[in-house]
Simulated scan of single mutants.
Amino acid sequence: MHNVSNPFQACNDIFFKPNGVFKAVGEHNNWSWMPFILIMAISLVSQYLYVNFVDIEWFAEMNIAAQGDMSPAEEEQMKAFFTRSALLWSSVIGAFFIPIVINAVYAVYVNLATRSDDSHVFGFTDWYGFAWWLSMPYVLTGLVGVALLLFTGDHQVAPSILSPASLGFIASIPMDSPWYAFGQAVRLELFWGIYLATVGITQWTSFSLKKSALIASAPYLIIYSIWLLALAVF
């Protein structure tokens, strides 16, 4: 198996030779600080650049339009929230805390789902570090998104520009569409992460590839199926 000797090499090899990376990460759990730092850096920088670039009045109007029927007073109240400063703080705080919480929930899930493994040796903190490696594809697409933002001349641009591999960006789903959030969530990184999770679970447990793939994909299949059904019905 491919040998990974340090966390810097692991951050590169996770895209090409993930088996060796997960083997090494299982033996050096402090390596997971590297993807955490990279993911947080690209997330915070991209949000900062976007908020300071976008036409804030246009952004407010698009978000108000997405809410549907609102009274003039409600529109004014909502518009008052959309100052550049308020949006910057909410975006940066969200970019920092949301992945921390999501990865913690995912770690709980995988820890419970792998308890039946006879060779079970990894606990919550191990799987929490594991979760950050699954998010590494967001670093690549995040860099592409930042490049697209820096080279665009139109300040009336949706946040989907920061997710260039998402269905929302590719299909140009407008912000006032009920499908916008779903389109943002369906992205290449999601499927790439499921693949990495499958590889990692196979490496860290005695489970078969099929069972590992089921564990890796189950929460997304359930969540996205319910989300899609809700959009179709309502």
Rank of each mutant, 00 (worst) to 15 (best):
residue 5 S to Q: 14
residue 8 F to D: 02
residue 9 Q to E: 15
residue 9 Q to H: 08
residue 15 F to K: 11
residue 26 G to L: 05
residue 42 I to H: 09
residue 43 S to E: 11
residue 53 F to N: 03
residue 53 F to Y: 14
residue 60 A to N: 02
residue 66 A to V: 02
residue 73 A to G: 00
residue 74 E to T: 06
residue 77 Q to F: 04
residue 78 M to T: 14
residue 79 K to I: 00
residue 80 A to C: 05
residue 82 F to Y: 15
residue 83 T to A: 08
residue 84 R to M: 15
residue 86 A to D: 14
residue 86 A to Y: 11
residue 87 L to V: 12
residue 89 W to I: 11
residue 93 I to T: 14
residue 99 P to E: 01
residue 101 V to G: 07
residue 102 I to W: 01
residue 104 A to E: 04
residue 112 L to K: 10
residue 113 A to T: 07
residue 114 T to A: 11
residue 115 R to K: 14
residue 116 S to Q: 12
residue 116 S to K: 13
residue 118 D to T: 12
residue 119 S to R: 13
residue 121 V to N: 12
residue 131 A to W: 06
residue 136 M to K: 10
residue 150 L to E: 08
residue 153 G to H: 08
residue 153 G to E: 06
residue 156 Q to M: 10
residue 162 L to P: 02
residue 163 S to K: 14
residue 163 S to P: 00
residue 164 P to A: 05
residue 166 S to C: 04
residue 166 S to T: 06
residue 167 L to T: 10
residue 169 F to G: 05
residue 171 A to C: 10
residue 175 M to R: 05
residue 175 M to G: 08
residue 175 M to E: 11
residue 176 D to K: 10
residue 178 P to N: 08
residue 180 Y to P: 06
residue 189 E to D: 14
residue 206 S to N: 13
residue 211 K to A: 05
residue 213 A to F: 12
residue 213 A to S: 09
residue 214 L to V: 09
residue 225 S to K: 01
residue 230 A to S: 15
residue 234 F to Y: 13
residue 234 F to A: 10
